[in-house]
């Protein structure tokens, strides 16, 4: 069930959604559902129903995150009816090219596989490592034999280094001793900087313990501190990552979150996914992040 449980309410708040100004609405969505939750849980007030959802023409869906020093990988799929079975459909008639700032065209070949570091699947992969610097703009073109075309452009954001990465334990008894983590960084002058703060435990391919997207609307040019609740155990190995995002990617993340929240939230307003590409749905962006490995003890 998609109804957010109570801890979600404060996780939303502690995880900084308020910085982008949506926390109160989400809070209320969650808190308002409290009564519903209490009443519906265990009372048999949910049931399967048949709904007749109209079929829309399938659109291409693209997901591609470029990184400096990495071989580019891209996943192309298409939209499927929501209630259809979750079977993987691989599109084998899609041509993908990237164009560098200098105009050099890189072809990504159809070679479905899985990246062993990130554990992410891809359908197309480049033939060589890319060198990308902040400010570089790359173009994407995705075409299939049915005439569907998706295009996009992405610019690598500037590097925003960590100022400090710290942790602190609470004063609870030994078996309840937990640490919070804080990071500080200097926001560049000028409103319009977007960030993503993630913490992974043990491996960067595992579940994200912390993941939120602050912006500098109210913090422009300041030394920004981001933090967690007391949630890490002694000797935890953590990967702390701070992404500096461009606005289109930030909007994409935000809209994906909104679209998911609206399904199962009677207070939510359905939101369209704000793609960073044209002609289809999806995201094409260039990542620039700082990552530090720490052991809290």
């Amino acid at each position: 069930m998609q109804i957010r449980q109570l801890p979600w309410i404060w996780l939303t708040l502690t995880r900084g959604a308020w910085l982008r100004g949506r926390a109160p609405r989400r809070l209320l969505g969650g808190a308002g559902l409290l009564a519903a939750l209490l009443l519906t849980t265990g009372c048999g007030l949910q049931k399967d129903v048949d709904v007749d959802l109209p079929a829309e023409p399938a659109q291409l869906v693209v997901e591609c995150y470029l990184e400096d020093g990495k071989v580019p990988e891209l996943t192309v799929t298409e939209t499927v009816p929501y209630l259809s079975a979750p079977t993987a459909t691989v599109l084998n008639d899609v041509t993908v090219t990237l164009t560098s700032p200098t105009g050099r065209v890189e072809t990504l070949v159809f070679r479905p596989g899985r990246n062993f570091t990130t554990r992410k699947f891809y359908t197309h992969r480049g033939l060589r490592v890319l060198r990308i610097r902040p400010g570089d703009t790359w173009q994407l073109s995705v075409k299939d034999t049915k005439g569907r075309v998706v295009t996009g452009a992405a610019t690598m954001p500037a590097t925003v280094p960590f100022d400090t990465v710290e942790w602190k334990f609470n004063d609870r008894p030994a078996d309840e001793r937990r640490a919070l983590v804080t990071v500080k960084f200097q926001d560049p002058p000028g409103v319009g900087d977007y960030y993503r703060f993630q913490i992974h435990r043990d491996s960067i391919s595992g579940a994200r313990e912390v993941d939120y997207n602050p912006e500098d609307r109210l913090l422009d040019g300041q030394l920004i501190t981001l933090g967690t609740s007391y949630e890490f155990e002694p000797d935890d190995t953590l990967f702390v990552t701070l992404y500096h995002l461009d606005r289109p990617y930030y909007r994409f993340l935000q809209s994906v979150d909104d679209a998911q929240s609206a399904n199962g939230n009677p207070f939510g307003q359905p939101a369209a996914v704000q793609s960073t590409v044209q002609g289809g749905i999806g995201v094409f962006t260039i990542l620039n992040y700082q990552r530090r490995q720490i052991i809290v003890r």
């Binding site: 929501y82 679209a259 609206a262």
Partner: peptide, 26 residues
């Protein structure tokens, strides 16, 4: 408004493939 279609989003490092709803007319 009910979502008529879905897409799969893998996202960057960590996490699982997520189904993201696509909404038709309001």
């Amino acid at each position: 408004t009910l979502p008529t279609a879905r897409i799969g989003v893998q996202d960057v490092y960590g996490g699982e493939l997520q189904a993201v709803p696509i909404y038709p007319d309001r």
